[in-house]
Design a binder for these strands. Sequence first.
DNA 1: GTCTATACTACGATAGAC
DNA 2: GTCTATCGTAGTATAGAC
Lengths: 196, 196
Amino acid sequence: MPRLTEARSQLRRDQIVQAARRCFVRNGMERASVADITAESGLSAGSIYAHFGSKADIVRAVVQDVMDRRALTLAAYASGVRPPSPTQVMVLLVAATDPDEARIALQAWGEATTDPAIHEIVVSMIDRMRDLFRVGCEAWLVEAKGYERAAAGPRATRIADHLVAVYQAHLIRAALLGAPDAVDDAALTDVVEAIS
Amino acid sequence: MPRLTEARSQLRRDQIVQAARRCFVRNGMERASVADITAESGLSAGSIYAHFGSKADIVRAVVQDVMDRRALTLAAYASGVRPPSPTQVMVLLVAATDPDEARIALQAWGEATTDPAIHEIVVSMIDRMRDLFRVGCEAWLVEAKGYERAAAGPRATRIADHLVAVYQAHLIRAALLGAPDAVDDAALTDVVEAIS
DNA sequence: GTCTATACTACGATAGAC
DNA sequence: GTCTATCGTAGTATAGAC
């Protein structure tokens, strides 16, 4: 029985997190009230506080959730047998960007400047992403470009840093300008390949 | 007399804006209260509301102020007779970055996702910056690299987009990791020159 | 676990004297 | 213009019934 109960509880938590996410996209993490979240989720304040200790806990859960989704997407691309090129990874990642997720990411960056818990989540996420890029690039350099292992490592680190920058800039565009189908593939490809 | 009075009023406004900026760096734009700003500025609530119509007005003024400072710094570099290379501009800009200003910038990005007034300020600032980069790059391509005018334009646009990305990524690092004297000039130079 | 109702606080903004 | 004092409200969190 505990297993089923626990799963149900997790489901409720997720229901609350997704409702909160929609509220945050609409009103911002700080301005969105618990009352907004109750209305959006169809639950009551009492129910919500049975699953989260405070509104700050909900904010943390939403940020963690969005970051985890991003990392999963990226990891999926990087884990194929034939490592994709940096350009391919970036094009896929950009095409898979949800503007709402991008907005949550920007809000999280802002929160991270003053909230230690969010700061920790965001920074460790950036590190994780850089690492995924790095590992993927290293494999690609060795297997597709014929690099020696020794030379591939430092080169991959450099490229990964750059991919993080390009990706972050893309998130800003996606969040503030909407999804410009103007995902200018040509420009993106040009830029990424110049550094690869 | 109106001139002197107006100047004094502007001084008070600036005093409030700078105090508010410090509060925002400490507590975030939303969490910082008007009471915090009165305490930090040494003024009273009544006085502050004589100069600003609402707290939202103060937030807008702070964001505008920080953005204007950045644009001024960049314009100063770009306006020399001998146009600097993209790498030089970026190195100077990065070296001149104040972590507190970077934090305000990140908070402004987050706010821009839900507040139309902030959105307008942020987006137009990004456009202005891109344009300054573009004009500077074009001059540099023509005068230092021997490009034809016709070829320099599109190339400069491409480089400018990239400089914006690199700069935004730098702001994120500066805001969240502090000023890493690890302004890794080598990495920066490498990346910017690859695309130049 | 979930609801309704409410306690308590903190905040933004204003009033009115000086 | 600036102050002190205060009003009204919105918001988080809890109590207690079911």
